[in-house]
Design a protein around this nucleic acid. Structure first.
Lengths: 231, 231
DNA sequence: GAGTGGTCTAGACCACAAT
DNA sequence: TTGTGGTCTAGACCACTCC
């Protein structure tokens, strides 16, 4: 019931990356080098590294070497890329307004969704994201303080909560729900929405090491935003 | 510039499955048997089959054998499972009403979206799906006749277009777009929607072997439907 | 016990990149 | 030319399932 050698090598590489010892773009030890370190056959190292490459953790190029891949969480659908990157990739200007950033007490529904006790402290933020000065996303978020103790000290006009959280607590699982909804009056005003314009809402719950790190509701004006992708 | 042996074996297995010679749940030849047929080392066969298992095409169990997996397209998000299966998995009753099923001529926009010439023939269907007699999805679809010549002869109250198409033309690529929208009067009436209730719309374009097989617009009442998933 | 997959070895030859 | 990854071989031992 011992862990297979190739899996131990995979775990080793992942641990080095998560610990920050090997960063994006860094050169990973060669197969030959890992063969020496682990005292196994090259085929065994090859399997470990090849699988990590297939999983998108590493990139390889023949003759050159193996590198730590850029972290893309997770590609397939409703990507966990930050709204800021998305706006910038369209060649537009992203700005953010922090409307709220405080500590709150968890009420019953929130406590059970995040998996803490009622009345436990949670961090709460409300941020409005603008694309070329026009509101595009209202981000309402509750954060588990255990996983991001410095949350309240961040400048979220420069780094989005999403970016900060994925850096401070590597995410292991994401649950989402997408719905259409009529906005309440306050949401409608903040997003400067037209009369009768519906809202496209993404609810997202992210986990880090099996613990809920954060719960977010992302509201978008239907006329200015949609999700898309392929696979 | 020859294809690697492991890739040839993967291609062979995929071809047998797509051709229908090997069906869901069928036992796949053992590694030993494939070693004999292809005249390669077992490690080479092992890599081919292991990768197909990792991709979800096959399932393996030690001691028992390797089987063709149930076709789940594609798992991660906005799964391509049929609305009928989804409703049944909730323990509810699915029924469908075929509102339209004809041949149409492609206008400019449709022709370019599907990649045919203007005025080429397309199959067009409009189907209303009900969950326990309550409308849940209005499916508006255009189909490339080249890939599904018998489309008009199907009984879509028994098999959904989606199920029929994935069987007759294995899909290789899916593009989607999700948006919130106010329904037009006719859509609203068909889906028996409340006053001011928004619509959750999924646009989907599916490819088979690099050719557009079908374009669909799926309309859902916001109050009765949402997309969800995890990864 | 016979057959299956799961893993591993100790070599090998090749294509490609950097120098 | 040296070092890298890409692929492959011909064995081996083991754990598991099925009969």
């Amino acid at each position: 019931m011992t862990t297979p050698a190739y899996q131990q090598i995979k775990d080793y590489v992942l641990a080095e990356i998560h610990a920050g010892n090997w960063r994006e773009g860094d050169l990973v030890p060669s197969e030959h080098e890992l063969v020496r370190r682990f005292g196994v056959a090259r085929m065994t190292v090859n399997r470990a590294i090849r699988e990590l490459a297939a999983e998108g953790v590493l990139t390889r190029s023949q003759g050159a070497g193996t590198y730590v891949a850029a972290t893309k969480y997770h590609g397939t659908l409703v990507e966990i890329k930050s709204i800021a990157d998305e706006i910038r990739s369209r060649g537009h200007r992203h700005t953010a307004r922090v409307l709220k950033l405080t500590t709150v007490r968890a009420d019953g529904a929130l406590a059970s969704e995040i998996g803490v006790n009622e009345n436990d402290k949670l961090f709460h933020s409300v941020i409005l994201h603008l694309e070329n000065e026009q509101p595009i996303q209202l981000e309402e978020r509750w954060v588990n303080p255990a996983l991001a103790p410095d949350y309240l000290a961040q400048d979220f006009t420069r780094v989005t909560p999403n970016e900060y959280l994925t850096r401070s607590a590597p995410l292991s699982r994401v649950e989402y729900r997408i719905e259409a909804r009529r906005p309440d009056r306050s949401t409608k005003a903040k997003l400067e929405m037209d009369k009768d314009e519906p809202c496209l809402v993404l609810h997202r719950r992210t986990y880090s090491n099996g613990v809920v790190a954060s719960v977010a509701n992302l509201f978008h004006p239907a006329g200015r935003y949609q999700f898309s992708g392929y696979f």
